[in-house]
Design a protein around this nucleic acid. Structure first.
Lengths: 348, 348
DNA sequence: GGGCTGGATGTTAGCGTTCACAATGCTGGT
DNA sequence: ACCAGCATTGTGAACGCTAACATCCAGCCC
């Protein structure tokens, strides 16, 4: 009795396809790479041999000789947060649409060393380009004097080195928030900012301050948070004790949520007593109590633009002159802001 | 006048290191791969040559000959959502800790075809193993009869094929939710479920139903949502009209938020009139109004366990016998649940 | 001291692809 | 009828690494 010990057959390689189609391996390669000079009938024959064998080309071998991998690297900080997660998602979709693959490194902490290590890791793996989504000051600095020679695009990185940067216009968003509140009759606007290490936090802070100054209003003391709802909650307790407070601009929606919670506990009514504006427009914001007025950031567009810029450099496409993508934030007015109520009867 | 046209110098390769260190390239390879039989002094020499030249090994060449890439693939659905994002994050951290790299494919829609395409894409790129984070029924089916021969682990996939699966014990979580509510004196518990296509939704639904039956309670009609806050909001309007309603178990926190919003608008007090339990414990839940009682899923642990199982298969580590990781959900009691209030005076 | 063991190192041959160049055959203009 | 020119196809040599085998030499036992 002979058992059918099927050979541990290797996966088919180009030579196998060539043999079956009765051509040389080079012709197979030409078909695969859409080389123009292949006779239609030959192409058909090769294609059907590929189909029969279930051949798939070995990309490692290809990468070895071409020196590119059609893989893009992404370095990101905390992809658990809505903003980075959405941006990475946008990047991934755009990259794949352009025929690229995406490898990702999520950093727990952003330091010059960790960013550099991540980029080294990615270049070792032969990525053709890198998008760095790391909106902290330290990441921006790490990028500025980069020893790596892989094309790179920064997201929210505002680097000094002049490399391409894609970001949302934070300062302008903050300006819109302030002007919206002032137009409702508020005398001034308080601000709970994000950590100083974050460029986005600084951009929003700057926009807020400038808008107030431009309108000739007093600029209240800045309160700092760490983006978390808890920080907003604590800020809420602080702000509830401020006399004459009527409007607050929170640096992100999560902190706005914490603030709303604190205000609810303390009997501060929104928007009757105090108007609140957030930033990000996370999916939950529309259903806060009250629904949050906030600034929408189009993270998908950020991802797309960064891939676009990266591919421009990679494939030396027509430059378009545009080295920076500045994407506007969009004010979404909901129930958490309203006209100032001068006859309010808050009890503190 | 002679211009110093510096050669477009290639990156150093192993042969360059070998020459500088006065050894053969194979010895360099041995040093790099921690082969035991290299004299200490030789190793030092090689290492310092590597340092001087800034040599980094070419992983494409390595992958070509070894047939592994030390890269793991992740197929995921909508990494914008908190759950998938956290899981992917956990996977990435665990993989990197184990010396693996992570490539990711995010799917917009889950179909058998799209999952298969993603996996083909990943195998083309030579990944050594794949984690599929795609908690829909269709993804589970796609995995069941997989033509690809790469080791795979499913997350939340509960496949019939018997491959390894890591998941949170949804049904048990739902049971905890129901028992918590019953213990507070509620007669029965309504449920707003997720889409039928999602295995998690079905698991929670099953657990809810079984727990009610086990306690001999009536099982109300199921309401379906799509996980979004808006769906919860609409369910809130429906449920506010239900007579005798005192407790609701929402299939996720986002829908719970929408429900809370609807109840606020309609004057239904939580927890005085109705108690509400969510599922997920997103960072925002603690700051809802009121803070949400919910079931915490340890997504990081899910990621770690899935990598652990995958590596077991890849490196044929001691199996541990465990082909499935079942991770318990943990009840977090907050302000949205309370004892039944029989003398309530709701006005409908 | 001769053969044997085993550590340390070198040599050679791929891995599967693309690139550069060569070779072939066909067309058409003169 | 001849040759240029082009489309089509084939040949051989990289790409940079690891695996397998070969070699050398020291130490050891009987």
């Amino acid at each position: 009795m002979s058992v059918d010990v099927s050979e541990p057959r290797r996966l088919p390689v180009m030579a196998d396809v060539a043999r079956l189609a009765g051509v040389s391996h080079q012709t197979v390669s030409r078909v695969l790479n859409d080389h123009p000079n292949v006779r239609g009938e030959t192409r058909e024959r090769v294609l059907s041999a590929i189909g029969d064998l279930g051949y798939r080309r070995n990309l490692a071998a290809r990468a070895l000789v071409t020196r590119h991998s059609r893989t893009l690297g992404v370095v990101s900080f905390d992809t658990t947060l809505y903003g980075p997660a959405s941006t990475v998602y946008g990047i991934e979709q755009a990259a794949r649409a352009a025929g690229y693959f995406v490898s990702i490194v999520s950093l727990k902490t952003i330091t010059r060393a960790s960013v550099l290590e991540a980029m080294g890791y990615l270049t070792d793996h032969g990525v053709d380009g890198i998008v760095v989504v790391a909106p902290q000051r330290s990441a921006a600095r790490a990028l500025a004097d980069l020893p790596v020679d892989v094309p790179t695009v920064a997201v929210e990185g505002g680097r000094s080195g002049g490399g391409p940067v894609v970001r949302v216009d934070q300062a302008d968003g903050a300006r819109q928030a302030v002007e919206h509140l002032l137009s409702l009759g508020h005398e001034t606007v308080w601000h709970v900012a994000g950590p100083t290490a974050w460029l986005e936090a600084e951009g929003r802070l700057r926009g807020w301050r400038q808008a107030l100054k431009a309108a000739g209003r007093s600029v209240p003391e800045v309160i700092r948070g760490d983006w978390s709802p808890r920080a907003g909650y604590e800020a809420g307790h602080t702000l509830a004790a401020v006399d004459g407070l009527t409007a607050v601009f929170m640096a992100n929606d999560q902190m706005a949520l914490g603030l709303l919670r604190a205000f609810t506990e303390l009997g501060v009514r929104v928007p009757d007593d105090v108007s609140v504006v957030g930033f990000d427009d996370i999916p939950e914001s529309e259903f806060f109590s009250p629904p949050l007025t906030t600034l929408r950031q189009d993270f998908g567009e950020v991802g797309r633009r960064s891939i676009e810029l990266l591919l421009q450099r990679l494939e030396s496409l027509p430059d378009g002159g545009e080295r920076r993508g500045l994407i506007p934030a969009q004010l979404v007015v909901r129930g958490s802001t309203g006209p100032i109520n001068r006859r309010r009867s808050r009890n503190r």
